[in-house]
Structures are given as structure tokens and as C-alpha cells.
Amino acid sequence: MTAALATLVAGIVLGYLGQRSRMCFVGGIRDFILVRDRDLLRGLVAFGITAWLAFPLVAALGAAAVGPFAKPDLTTMALTVCGAFGVGYVSTLANGCPFRQHVLAAQGAVSSVTYVTGFLVGAVIFHVWAAPLLLRVLP
């Protein structure tokens, strides 16, 4: 219950800010390459630095700390690289990261509504077909 409520509130705040700032987590890198615009890239860097500082800070204040993390095996590493590369490549072609697509869908872009629909259907496809297939193929 706590997690559901916390994420709902965090989502509302982020959705509001994301709509006002046009924040996109792949758009920062894309804009910098295309037109040397640093606005969204600053947001990306700010997110990373703030989280990097906040993790140990909340742990020092008594909250649950993250880690330690297990050393990844080669298969997991290869799957992560392939998946993450695909997220970056296809999100750029799709004109925005999943967060940006949700924001655009909420402000009336029907193309983003179809993207979000595909996104949700994709979760089912992954667990019903893709993951079992991978488990059968991989060592």
C-alpha cells in the first residue's frame, strides 16, 4: 500500500514537472549531438548526480542502503548490453524515452498513446513469449 501510494504521488509530481520542462532521458544526448543544446542534458546529469549523492545520504540518515551488488555473469551482462542498446536506439527513433512518451500521451499526442499501448502490451509479450524463449535458448 505504501509503495503504491508513494509511486502514485511521485509519478504525479514528475509528470507535472516533465510536462512543463519537456524532460527526456534520451533527448538530452540526442539534442546535444544534433544542435549542441544542453538543456535536457543538464537534467540528465542533475538526475544522476543528485541520486548519486542522495543514496548514501538517506542511508546515513538510517534508511535502507542500496547494495552490495553481486558480480554479474557474462550472460546477464550480454543481455543487459543488448537490451539497453535497444532501449537507447529505438527510443531515439521513437522520438523520446518512455517517460517522455507517457507525458506526450497525456497531453494529447495520439502517436504516444499508441506507443504507451504497445509498451503495456510489450510487457505481456515479454513474460509470455520472449522470456521463456530466452530461457530455453540461453545456457
Binding site: F25, V26, F47, L79, T80, C82, G83, A84, F85, G86, V87, G88, V90, S91, L93, A94, C97, P98, F99, Q101, S111, S112, T114, Y115, V116, T117, G118, F119, L120, V121, G122, A123, I125, F126, A130, A131, L134
Partner: peptide
């Protein structure tokens, strides 16, 4: 096309263990 992009990004993200964020 955008529907397919959504399907692909979700599958890639679940494979990678998370979206860009």
C-alpha cells in the same frame, strides 16, 4: 510504427533490467 516501437522498447527494457531512468 509507434505501437511497435513501444513493444520493442518495453522488451529491451525488461531485458536490460530497466528503462533509461
Amino acid at each position: 510504427k509507434t505501437f511497435v516501437y513501444g513493444v520493442v522498447v518495453m522488451n529491451c527494457a525488461l531485458l536490460a533490467g530497466g528503462c533509461s531512468i
